[in-house]
């Protein structure tokens, strides 16, 4: 499978409320990430916006519906459209999530957790092989937030991801917030998680916010609707020291603030990464 060279830069997710900013001003980012499915359409304004954005910035296609964990395999129509979009946009890379979203009959439109079993690993690897073959390129897969583990689990999530990357040649998109959320919900150590990953396969880092647990609800919810919290910044500091320079971005999916607020957060990420790199070099 093809090699994805490291890309050292800082970016933001493109959201509708910021279209004008990205098309009419010089937004100081090194790349832009878009939700693939929003542009897997026949024509119209969304594709025009994406093409104009692509003319100004490198673009990453980040999907939410590949359903790489589906026991029934991948949706060939979906793959066809994704491949066409990738050909049209020539992205830095194409990514999706370690999860499943659909059965043969229905689609949940949510990133559902997989049982961490050898059987699921076989399914995921076969599906990734198919996707990478169709796209003609290696992909990145992101660790999900989860609220559920299964009695049949046979391995840790980091062991699953490591073996998945080893067998398929795919790369990893490490969402530090998702690690935090799942660590809180399932009681594992985020540091142990990082230590268990093949960090040389990490090509991108996501930073985001979440909704904390409450007195009535013990689970932390990955809402991506607020600023990155201090605990996640601490984890980013820890992982940045381990990975070295990696494409890093702030991901906000809901309650989208003015662009300036996201750029401030991105500036903080940049400072942490630069400090980590200086410490590594010293």
């Amino acid at each position: 499978m093809s090699v994805i060279a490291p890309f050292h830069g800082f970016g933001l997710a493109l959201r509708r409320t910021h279209y004008t900013d990205f098309l009419e001003t010089q937004v100081p980012v090194d790349f832009v990430e878009v939700i693939s499915e929003n542009y897997m359409v026949e024509g119209g304004k969304p594709l025009r916006i994406l093409e104009e954005t692509r003319a100004r910035h490198p673009v990453i296609l980040h999907g939410v519906s590949m359903s790489v964990g589906s026991a029934q395999g991948l949706d060939e129509d979906y793959l066809e459209r994704l491949a066409a979009l990738a050909q049209r946009i020539d992205p830095l890379w194409v990514s999706d999530h370690l999860c499943w979203t659909r059965t043969s009959a229905h689609n949940s439109h949510d990133l559902l957790p997989l049982p961490l079993t050898a059987e699921a690993l076989d399914v995921v690897c076969a599906n990734i092989d198919r996707a990478q073959e169709k796209l003609g390129r290696a992909m990145l897969f992101e660790n999900p937030s989860s609220y559920l583990t299964f009695p049949e689990d046979e391995m840790s999530e980091w062991a699953f991801l490591s073996e998945m990357a080893r067998r398929t040649g795919c790369y990893l998109l490490l969402d530090v917030n998702n690690v935090y959320v799942s660590a809180q919900n399932h009681g594992f150590s985020a540091s142990e998680y990082f230590a268990g990953l093949p960090l040389d396969r990490v090509r991108q880092i996501h930073l985001a916010g979440h909704t904390p647990a409450t007195g009535e609800r013990s689970l932390v919810i990955d809402t991506h609707d607020r600023e990155v919290c201090d605990e996640v910044w601490d984890l980013f500091r820890e992982v940045a020291a381990l990975t070295g320079p990696v494409a890093t971005m702030i991901e906000r999916d809901d309650a989208i603030p003015p662009l300036s607020e996201l750029l401030d957060e991105l500036g903080r990420a940049r400072n942490i990464a630069v400090n980590a790199e200086q410490a590594r070099a010293a």
Partner: peptide
Amino acid sequence: MSTLAERQAEIMASLLD
């Protein structure tokens, strides 16, 4: 049906109902 397929069918049914 595989164990994984059964598990996914159960979870999906629980979401829908």
